[in-house]
Amino acid sequence: MVNNTTTVKPHRSNVTRRKIANRIMLTLCMLASVAAVTVLGLVLFFLISKGFSSINVKFFTQLPNHVDEKAGGMSQSIYGTLVLLGLASVIGLPLGILGGIYQLEAKGKFASAVRFFTDVLNGIPSIVIGIFVYAVWVAPIAKLHPGTGYSAFAGGFALGIMMIPTIMRTTEEILKLVPFSMREASLGLGATRWRTMWSVVLPSARGGVITGIMLALARIAGETAPLLFTILGNEFFVTHKVYGIKVPTLTAPIDALPLRIYNYATAVDPEQQRMAWAGAVVLITLILVLSIAARAATRGKVLEEK
């Protein structure tokens, strides 16, 4: 650096040592990531080798058939999971996104308290949420009308609660990334804060917000614990007609893929165990699709060139 005889010249061996350390650490980093990917690869390999053979058209179209398991399917679980994701979104999306906006915009003691409790909510084990929904919803209803209580509503409620903190946090973090100058521009034109948020900030962060939603959905799609106490499981897909259109009955017990996998995997019948593997493949595929959709959403630029 400096032409000064008193400064210590770096020895060649020192440089070599640093080079080696650099090489070693980079290799370790690479190995760690390879290990993570390998685990995923192994999981997928096992799932597919064990479950793929049981996946066929009937799997998606038929209800369980206990006389001839091979003729049955898991259609009710697949529909059930989709219904539950929809219900959870109805609760989780508005509360999560509006809450995230609040955390971004509001300052002061109340806002930081909200932020803290959101983090706490995020850390609550899913089974506790299941018990909570059981206690405040399922049990009281069962008391009033014996034989009811377990329902799609209750399951969607539990999963929706789980979505809220995740979406709140990701929404806040993503919106924070929108440059302040963008807001200033909008406010400077006489827009209100809400208008600025709705028309400028949210659209700028659209990709990121959607990614957060997808990841939250992917997370709850595989949750089993909160469903144990809330949806009961069902070997049928209960529907009724509204204006001649078949719609799922949300007050009836419903099935879900993770719950069905749990039930079948612990069964003695080897055919049911195979069905459990197949169900796992379908569930993983669903989550994979959600994750890929999330990636696609972020890759989409803020504004496409026309």
């Binding site: 963008m182 200033e184 400077g188 803020v302 504004l303």
Partner: peptide, 12 residues
């Protein structure tokens, strides 16, 4: 109205 230091068009 206000014009800022850095051009800040909206992503539109």
């Amino acid at each position: 109205g206000m014009v800022f230091q850095k051009p800040n068009p909206f992503p539109m």
